[in-house]
Design a protein around this nucleic acid. Structure first.
Lengths: 181, 181
DNA sequence: GATTTTACTTACTAGTTAGTAAGTTGTCAA
DNA sequence: TTGACAACTTACTAACTAGTAAGTAAAATC
């Protein structure tokens, strides 16, 4: 599952095969089919684990007790770390790009994951604005969609243009949110 | 080439084959290999055509004489139209997601295309700010990267969450840029 | 100690992939 | 009228794809 997740973020759903994972593990194709009968089930389990992990994180007191700005920094660090790890891309973003060639259950998982990321970001933005730390126009839900989409897109853009381009996007977001009215 | 471009935006580089194009055209695989010996050459030609088309557009007086706000609306409309056309995704964004499994020449093309999109957006933002129409913090290059990344990411997110989510992202950008200081 | 279960292996299938070689047909120019 | 060429076709290859069936060895259970 670690390898599947890594390949997903690296090459996309259509970019890796059982053979790639088997080779890396030093086992045969069939060994993976034993644990995950179909590719759909394998990737489904990977996304589910990713979702569970995110829920665990945001419900953990170590994140829950952070200030809005610290929460945002923590969230950004997920993407910065992904970028630092061989230019990996957000799992949700990778799946969305291939959404139209994805089996049904994976579309649902992708949708659910994206909703969960957005919901948390929206709540954090709202919390920060109410605390007077963040400034932005309009609905927190819209600003959350803007930020998440640009994080996902930024990771992809960084592959063509380098890590710096991604860091400036993150910094620009912070500058926009923290600019005094 | 039209079909290849469409498939690229729909399924990604690893998501379509010669057979898909041949079937749609009612010809055999080999007929496409006759015109484009390798998939790399086919996709390379598609990106080159896309780049040429963009250069033609931005150098055409119909776009060149537009106001900064109208230029921005025109740029956004490229993405809105793509979204409206069966949920297609930005060509640059699609290629960047699979960047790590792309042949060398396609990486260079993707890089060049992204640079050209960014450069035009940056110039337009700068022009708008100098004309007093746009307000934003920091370097126009950074704001351009933020906007482009969120357009690319937004198109992908819209696949999972629907067209509305993309429109709110576009509206949010306009609101941010036009907000009186 | 016998039996079941787990985690594999070897060996395979049917379908798809990009790509090639050689033959066919229609058009157009000399 | 001939010949060249463009645009295909049929027929193929080698590699890869997800997925399966049957066999095996070790560990856990009874």
């Amino acid at each position: 599952m670690d390898l599947a997740e890594s390949f997903l973020q690296d090459k996309g759903f259509n970019g890796f095969s059982y053979a790639h994972i088997a080779a890396e593990l030093g086992v045969r194709n069939a060994a993976i089919h034993y644990h995950f009968p179909s590719k759909e089930e394998l990737v489904c389990a990977v996304i589910q684990r990713y979702r569970d992990r995110f829920q665990l994180w945001i419900n953990n007191s170590r994140v829950k007790n952070l200030s809005p700005l610290e929460k945002l920094d923590w969230f950004f660090s997920i993407y910065t770390d992904a970028r630092a790890d061989n230019g990996k891309v957000c799992l949700a973003g990778s799946l969305e790009t291939e959404f139209n060639s994805l089996p049904g259950s994976l579309r649902e998982q992708t949708e659910a994951l994206t909703h969960e990321l957005l919901a948390w970001l929206q709540a954090t933005l709202q919390e920060g604005r109410e605390a007077g730390v963040f400034q932005f126009n309009g609905d927190p839900a819209d600003k959350a969609a803007l930020i998440l989409s640009s994080l996902q897109g930024g990771l992809q853009m960084a592959r063509a243009l380098g890590t710096d381009k991604f860091h400036t996007v993150v910094e620009q977001h912070k500058q926009d949110l923290l600019a005094s009215a």
